[in-house]
């Protein structure tokens, strides 16, 4: 058995085997995360609103999300009559590209990383901008006014919030002197960067709530005014792909925040993976908490907040950091 495995590894090469194993791991994390988070979101929402949440299927309702996903898988895939077919079909698939690419560079532990690329953070930032593109073509291709409004809003919002997101990560890159995520984590051996850069952390977190389209910045899908925004016309498994991508994006922004500001996989006693997931899910919980605490902002408030407050403050932060580092 061992010999056969070794033979296979020798034939196709170590790098390929590593990549395949890494991608399988990524799929497991993506699916497990989504299944767990749907349950958590409903439980947290329930308790915040003094309800109990799901409790019928399995102990504490733990199997609820499995039941839901089986239901979604079994549903008929409806295609509305007037949709722009290629765009309509492409959107749910395209939204998964950035999700998978981003996972490749996140260091879950000192050794647990699919590939350490020396421009790691640029890979994440570059590919996460694809999300807005798929929202755009999904909303446009649906031939529905609500979808189109959702898509337009999402574009305006993403343009506005990508700038502070980038600018809040730059001081960290200054301090770590590297684009590689592992170097950034290693640079936080002593003190976490959140201690040096509290403003950058706040800006990053606010901007990432907007980038993942979560309440209070969920204008692209605002249920109470736009039905479901850009994915109004999607049903069954296509809808659940959007859903899966949203939950995975929540995990990714939290993981990036942990990597850049909260010391990544570093922590005493427990192994690194445990620390990484604990910190990440703490931030994910904060995102859920936001959703059930803050009301949705108005669109002009949303844009003004980014252009008039977040961007100037993050520029100032960048300037001060650069100045201090050069002294």
């Amino acid at each position: 058995m061992c010999d056969t495995i070794n033979n296979i590894i020798n034939i196709v090469g170590k790098e390929v085997v590593r990549t395949v194993i890494g991608l399988v791991g990524v799929f497991i994390v993506v699916l497990g995360n989504a299944i767990m988070l749907t349950w958590t979101e409903r439980k947290v929402a329930g308790h915040i609103q003094r309800r109990i949440g799901p409790k019928e299927v399995g102990p504490f309702g733990l199997l609820q999300s499995f039941a839901d996903s089986v239901k979604l898988l079994g549903k008929e895939l409806l295609t509305p009559a007037n949709v722009e077919k290629p765009l309509y079909y492409l959107a749910p698939t395209l939204i998964f590209v950035p999700v998978l690419v981003t996972f490749v560079v996140i260091p879950f532990d000192g050794f647990l990383q699919v590939k350490d690329i020396n421009t790691g953070i640029l890979v994440i930032l570059a590919f996460s901008s694809l999300t807005v593109l798929s929202i755009l073509i999904g909303g446009w291709g649906s031939d529905n006014k609500y979808s189109l409004i959702g898509a337009v809003r999402s574009v305006a919002q993403n343009i506005a919030y990508e700038i502070p997101l980038l600018l809040s990560l730059l001081p960290i890159i200054f301090m770590a002197n590297s684009f590689s995520l592992r170097d950034v984590v290693e640079a936080q051996k002593g003190l976490w960067f959140v201690v040096y850069q509290p403003i950058a952390f706040l800006i990053f977190f606010i901007a990432s709530v907007a980038e993942t389209n979560r309440t209070p910045f969920d204008l692209p899908e605002a249920e109470s005014e736009l039905v479901a925004g850009f994915h109004t016309e999607y049903s069954g498994m296509r809808f659940s792909l959007f859903f899966l991508a949203e939950y995975t994006n929540m995990f990714i922004v939290s993981a990036i925040a942990v990597t850049f500001f909260l010391g990544g996989y570093q922590g005493p006693i427990l192994p690194g993976v445990v620390w990484f997931f604990m910190k990440t899910y703490l931030l994910v919980f904060v995102l859920l908490w936001f959703r059930w605490t803050f009301p949705r902002v108005r669109f002009d408030q949303l844009l003004n907040f980014s252009w008039k407050i977040l961007i100037p403050v993050s520029f100032l932060n960048l300037l001060v950091t650069g100045g201090i580092l050069k002294l």
Binding site: N118, A126, L136, N158
Partner: peptide, 24 residues
Amino acid sequence: PFLAMMQILIYVGAITVLIAFAIM
């Protein structure tokens, strides 16, 4: 790779999205 990532970040992430916005 740096140039490649910048190409995607600026041209795909910013410029085409801005063009899309203008189209809408």
